[in-house]
């Protein structure tokens, strides 16, 4: 069964149509990267999957469950999806470990000791072992973003959504975050990623999805998309972004 299936997803803000019938399927272990110009609807698509935005039409199906059905428990559905934002959004009044274990304790009702043990293990694995009891606003941007990723994967979500997770970072710090994402791919995570980092997209993606004006115009392997894009819009976008 597919982890994620989008059927004809529409979204408008006022009279601006931002998503115009998006179809997309992710199988288990798939890593799909969304590319496209600013305003093409990448973030909006991720937000509708996470139910932060309500779709105007179509379905979001998570492992067979239609989570856009009004009868679904929105909180339960969100707990099955891990999200990392551009702006980290750690809770500054909590320590790193409490940020990381919050959902495990509160939503998944793990015992505190189990949550802490797993949180510490993950933080150590990703080189944050010495930051466990630090307050999260005392970390560097790259460290904060890595903590945010650990927070998102803490409860083994079925699907991970990453929205431009490096665009608020100094170029120096981008590498450490992207390395972590590559580790997650090795570990078999199913991920849907929006990014402007084309070299990262090329190395991490199983499939690249090009969005334009709220539609998916072209889908293919990194080789197809970057070497021989078919649509003129894709060619133009890639030409522009490569020559920045």
């Amino acid at each position: 069964m597919s982890v994620l299936k989008l059927n004809n997803v529409w979204k408008r803000f006022g009279d601006v149509e931002v998503l115009k019938g998006v179809d997309l399927t992710l199988e288990e272990h798939d890593v799909v990267v969304l590319i496209g110009a600013s305003g093409s609807g990448k973030s909006t698509l991720l937000r509708t999957i996470n139910l932060i935005e309500q779709v105007d039409d179509g379905q979001v199906i998570l492992s067979g469950d239609d989570i856009t059905d009004p009868r679904t428990d929105v909180d339960k559905a969100r707990a099955r999806i891990g999200v990392v934002f551009q702006q980290f959004n750690l809770f500054p009044h909590m320590k790193v470990i409490d940020n990381v274990t919050l959902a495990a304790r509160r939503v998944h009702k793990w015992p505190a000791a189990k949550a802490r043990a797993k949180g510490v293990a993950l933080l150590e694995k990703f080189g944050l072992g010495d930051k466990v009891d630090e307050y999260s606003d005392r970390l560097s941007g790259g460290q904060q973003q890595r903590v945010a990723i650990v927070r998102a994967i803490m409860t083994d979500p079925e699907l991970l959504l990453l929205d431009e997770i490096t665009s608020a970072l100094d170029p120096m710090l981008v590498g450490e975050v992207l390395d972590l994402v590559r580790d997650l791919k090795e570990g078999g995570s199913t991920m849907l990623i929006a990014t402007h980092e084309m070299s990262f997209a090329r190395t991490v993606a199983d499939r690249i999805v090009f969005m334009h004006g709220g539609r998916i115009l072209e889908t293919g392997t990194p080789e197809q998309i970057f070497s021989a894009p078919e649509r003129p819009e894709t060619q133009e976008f890639l030409a522009r972004i490569m020559h920045r």
């Binding site: 996470n50 932060i52 909180d75 969100r78 707990a79 934002f85 959004n89 809770f91 939503v107 998944h108």
Partner: peptide
């Protein structure tokens, strides 16, 4: 964004 982050975790 703090609320969104919390709701995204399923709170």
């Amino acid at each position: 964004s703090q609320r969104i982050a919390a709701r995204s975790l399923g709170l």
